[in-house]
């Protein structure tokens, strides 16, 4: 118990370090919030006006903005977590050699992983909370279940945070990250974000259902529109499992990579 407290304290020192760094770059933090909002206004509302009255999900008419908003929230939870836990972690580990310095202190690789992950979650969580407020103000949340979209977004962050860290331990150069960015982009466009996947051919639907962002989008959409059913538990379990697998792999490999 006592050692767990000590470990948490050391992990929080890493969190603090990131806070000190970003205090100097407030716009970099703030700017991350705007991207999903801009997409919401452009595609959700702008294009949404072109489909008003004709947009349907499972045969039921629905406001397009209502459909797109939770997807943008899920996307921003994904990219926020990936930026911190995959891209920034990779840079700090491989190029800056930052962790080599921290490891000379009582901090261990696992505490570094937890510190970075908690920072990624805090950052992503702040974006999600702000986005949820925007949605509420714009009347894009139709039920009190929407409050649960915040923990839902944190779960997405945890899943992608774990996945991102695991990926960061395998990649070798920034060029490899082009593939990661590419895959994230494809997920962003096709995870039932802008159109229901029922439009896709069967094989593509199947493929989308295997990928994680789809489950995040469906989870948040169910919550913000109040269409809550057992299916949501399935999405949450998928994300939790991904988080567990990612974090297990990441913590094993971080130790190996950092303590040679």
């Amino acid at each position: 118990m006592l050692t767990m407290v000590a470990q948490a304290k050391r992990a929080s020192a890493l969190f603090e370090r990131n806070v000190v760094v970003y205090k100097r770059l407030p716009w970099n933090i703030v700017s991350g919030f705007f991207e999903p909002v801009l997409y919401l206004f452009s595609i959700g509302i702008g294009v949404g006006a072109l489909v008003s009255g004709t947009f349907t999900v499972d045969g039921e008419p629905m406001s397009y903005a209502l459909f797109v908003a939770p997807a943008m929230m899920a996307q921003s939870a994904m990219s926020g977590a990936m930026i911190e836990s995959a891209f920034n972690l990779f840079g700090k580990m491989r190029y800056q050699k930052l962790y080599d310095a921290f490891l000379a202190t009582p901090v261990g690789p696992n505490e570094i992983a937890w510190g970075e992950l908690s920072f990624a979650l805090a950052r992503g969580g702040a974006y999600s909370a702000a986005f949820l407020v925007v949605m509420a103000v714009m009347d894009l949340t139709t039920s009190w279940w929407a409050v649960l979209a915040l923990p839902g977004a944190l779960l997405i962050g945890l899943a992608f945070g774990g996945l991102g860290m695991a990926i960061a331990t395998f990649l070798r150069s920034w060029q490899d990250f082009d593939y990661v960015t590419g895959i994230m982009y494809v997920m962003f466009l096709f995870s039932g974000t802008f159109a229901p996947i029922a439009l896709f051919p069967a094989w593509a639907q199947w493929l989308v259902q295997v990928t994680p962002l789809y489950h995040g989008v469906e989870l948040l959409r169910g919550l913000t529109t109040g269409q809550v059913g057992p299916g949501l538990i399935g999405h949450a379990v998928y994300l939790a499992a991904l988080a567990a697998i990612g974090l297990t792999i990441a913590s094993r490999r971080m130790g190996k990579l950092l303590l040679k």
């Binding site: 595609i43 294009v47 004709t54 982009y185 494809v186 466009l189 096709f190 439009l199």
Partner: peptide, 18 residues
């Protein structure tokens, strides 16, 4: 090309309907 598929064909289906 991906944008054409996702937005153009995806959302476009509904735009064209109306």
């Amino acid at each position: 090309v991906l944008f054409m598929l996702s937005i153009g064909l995806g959302v476009g289906t509904y735009v064209d309907r109306g």
